[in-house]
């Protein structure tokens, strides 16, 4: 028979893949994502006695994860961190298969996603990556469904503009119809 604490821990283990992807979406770097995930788990476990039964565990942990990243991001700014933590090109773990996948424009889309505002990135993450319905996203983020829809529309529009910016008259005059590099 599992104790309440063991069951709670198992619920966190079940949540790990999603939480890890969320960390990845925030940091834009696999190494940073795992560091952030570790800090989040460490903090969550240390706060077990503050967790109220009936609280959404995923919401509780996602919020903790996001706040830790905001703290880290501020701290890096203060320290004048020389490496952009959102530089996907610095990833060293990409193996052959991932390089093949990269041909689909993963790197490009990732870089574009990192140019979005946090709230835009989060809404795309919830709806597109994790398959939340608008209603679920609205409950998760504590915002009306109408706001989910408008925020998502703005986020996707912004992404579209980064990935396929309109061709300027100068470009046409110069015979350059290719979009500019990100």
């Amino acid at each position: 028979m599992k104790t309440e604490a063991e069951q709670w821990r198992d619920d966190i283990i079940a949540l790990l893949p999603r939480l890890r992807r969320f960390s990845f979406s925030l940091t834009g770097s696999a190494a940073d994502a795992d560091d952030l995930l570790q800090n989040t788990i460490e903090k969550a476990l240390s706060r077990y006695d503050q967790f109220e039964q009936g609280t959404d565990l995923d919401k509780w942990m996602f919020r903790m994860c996001k706040n830790l990243w905001i703290d880290e991001w501020r701290s890096r700014k203060v320290r004048g961190h020389s490496v952009d933590p959102m530089d996907y090109q610095n990833e060293q773990w990409i193996d052959g298969e991932d390089i093949a996948i990269n041909k689909l424009g993963m790197s490009e889309v990732k870089t574009a996603m990192n140019k979005l505002q946090d709230e835009q990135r989060v809404i795309i993450f919830l709806i597109t990556v994790e398959g939340y319905s608008y209603k679920e996203a609205s409950i998760f983020l504590d915002i009306p469904i109408g706001t989910v829809m408008s925020r998502l529309a703005r986020a996707r529009k912004a992404l579209e503009l980064v990935l396929s910016p309109p061709i300027s008259p100068d470009d046409i005059a110069n015979g350059n119809r290719q979009r500019s590099p990100l």
Partner: peptide, 19 residues
Amino acid sequence: QYDKTIVRTYHAIDTKPMP
């Protein structure tokens, strides 16, 4: 296409062993 690439991008970390 963007949606599909976004999904693949963020699920790519699933292939990396959990620390």
